[in-house]
Write a protein that binds this DNA or RNA. Structure first.
Lengths: 348, 348
DNA sequence: TGCGTGCGCTAAAGCGCTTGAGTGGAAAGA
DNA sequence: TCTTTCCACTCAAGCGCTTTAGCGCACGCA
């Protein structure tokens, strides 16, 4: 019979001090591994704290200048893009793994757009809520680095290119250009000359990087007919663009999609038009996930370890919070996993 | 040239008090809409606060007993299940929508299992981090309600059945049993008599509800041959179970999957075995998402509005935080969207 | 013996906010 | 006119923790 119990009271340092027979300051010193108490007292205090199940009140800590022990993460994407994207949950789970070890909280927020995202940062900063933030989806002309700089909020940009204009920000990035080059290599070797790149949101920095890389690689090899079409990452646009380019007079023989969702939708659209994959057209997805092995044919994909990506980002942020210098770290270039959706171009 | 600026200082109530020529208490009264100041002073204080860009420090608020202005959300699922599930992001985005309006933060954590989840709650409680939590994936013999009760942490259980043993917890749930009944109705009308249910994790409460409902409905109609097989929700198990049941001597004519991912994998597995959908076997997914329209044939699915589900849950939690009574609210029964993966059973 | 030194500890202030107990003055009642 | 009441506002304590200053003590040294 669960009568309405009063909520248990949280033990405070005062309780510990009383039971250990020392002052609160001594307790503070002891528990924070600061000099000022003897080892024997330290041990005793530690034991009492443990026994009482004491945990520091983040509120009190934050108030006395120690920071909020929390980092922020804002996802600013149109709501309908949120659905079937495996990347973010994986990323977040990697982030958590690192943060949890240090008992750092993750304050999460989804916002409709970057402007709102900035407002969130301002609010978090003003409210003392976070000690640092993880920024995703960096853009061309991104207002966020300037803002974070202005607020003095430690931050690591995930997926941005190195940015020497903001020496205070760490960056964790994958070399999209290198991956694109390798991809074009592989497709070229299979005989593909007409490649269309169904890209993601136009103002995302990595979209631009990929588009430029494709153009550069094509130029280097004398491939005239490459094209990048930007989309909103949705299955609907992926399918629509696929239909459009395949119905052109000289359809491409290879399609590169900036995410798995569009690639899957694209394959379906291609089949609908009578194109068989990979006989008539090869398909590569930029993000590997279970999805790529859930359709027939299995999709060839550029695979990277998103969980590890998250771990790396979180590690950089903790380093920053510890007072370390901002760094730019590159994670491994995505690897092309060749499955059944890519093949040699059909001989004429 | 971004020289290292000192981080801007946050204005405090003291600053406001000085500029408005009143005491800090007056400022507090004014800004919190408490009696004790005249309307004219209140206005002046408000203006100054606005002008200074003041925001209350959550740390200080929390410390003086006001709560942390944050709610917690733990996702305890094995890491590999995290990938392609549209449900949670949608749910979270609905939750956010409501929380953001009240400037409540969402502390998010992924944990490996329920035990760790409990540890997280304890820590959050001890550290004064959250005012309440949203609990997902309620289980049979769930330790969490007892714990939350013990801690006196307001909570709403998402997807649980009404639970009269924990009058302090709110519950937001969908009537799985009703949906299952409607589904069996529909399949029965199409002539299906042998139905296999590829269910989710065995100890999830809604898994059990669905299994029981299926059995009850089958019993009511004299369908002898129904079966539920529990899985881990992964595409791999979905495919494996599909193969196993279709290779049995008298294979089912309809398959009901507890999520979209398994359904898609199941269709692929069925095709691999030479079963065509829906001619040889009908397929229904319990969760609707873009995924269901990305495969051929398009999957019939039980659809519900997960974003709205999130909104409802968050609304209940805020009500609880406002001191309201715990409630049990039912969201609309999932609707069956009939697409191309269900059809009449083939005549012998 | 006296003095400086360092160690182990305590006292107290302060972080930014809330809140209950005053306080002074004007308006209302006797 | 004096008291009462009420209102607008101030004071000060307190939330749980960190941190600086300082205190007493034993020790080493001259």
């Amino acid at each position: 019979m669960a009568a309405k119990r009063p909520a248990a009271r949280r033990p405070t340092m005062k309780d510990i001090a009383r039971r250990a027979g020392v002052s609160e300051s001594a307790v503070s010193f002891a528990l924070n591994d600061r000099p000022g108490v003897s080892e024997i007292t330290r041990d005793r205090v530690r034991r009492v704290a443990e026994q009482l199940g004491w945990r520091p009140s983040t509120a009190a800590r934050a108030l006395s200048g120690e920071g909020a022990a929390t980092v922020g993460f804002v996802l600013a994407r149109p709501a309908h893009t949120l659905g079937v994207d495996s990347f973010f949950l994986q990323l977040v789970s990697g982030i958590q793994e690192v943060l949890a070890r240090r008992h750092l909280g993750l304050l999460f927020q989804v916002a409709p757009d970057v402007e709102d995202e900035c407002a969130v940062y301002r609010r978090w900063w003003a409210e003392h809520r976070v000690d640092g933030v993880l920024v995703v989806d960096p853009r061309t002309d991104d207002p966020r680095p300037d803002l974070l700089d202005e607020l003095g909020l430690p931050a690591v940009v995930i997926g941005g290119a190195p940015d020497e204009r903001h020496p205070g920000l760490s960056t964790v990035w994958a070399d999209d250009a290198g991956a694109m080059a390798a991809l074009v290599d592989a497709l070229h070797a299979l005989g593909h000359r007409r490649i269309v790149h169904i890209a993601g949101l136009p103002d995302l920095a990595h979209t631009e990087r990929r588009i430029r890389a494709l153009r550069a690689e094509a130029g280097r090899r004398g491939l005239g007919e490459v094209e990048s079409v930007t989309t909103d990452y949705s299955d609907a646009e992926g399918a629509a663009v696929t239909r459009r380019v395949l119905e052109a007079p000289a359809p491409p023989t290879a399609l590169v999609y900036d995410n798995d969702v569009m690639a899957v939708a694209g394959v379906a659209a291609a089949s609908g038009l009578g194109f068989s994959v990979p006989a008539d057209v090869s398909v590569v997805a930029w993000e590997d996930s279970a999805l790529c092995r859930m359709v027939k044919p299995w999709l060839s994909a550029l695979s990277r370890d998103s969980v590890e990506f998250g771990r790396t980002a979180a590690t950089e942020l903790t380093a920053l919070l510890d007072g370390g210098p901002a760094r730019t770290v590159r994670v491994p270039v995505p690897r092309l996993i060749e499955r059944d959706s890519t093949g040699p171009v059909r001989p004429l």
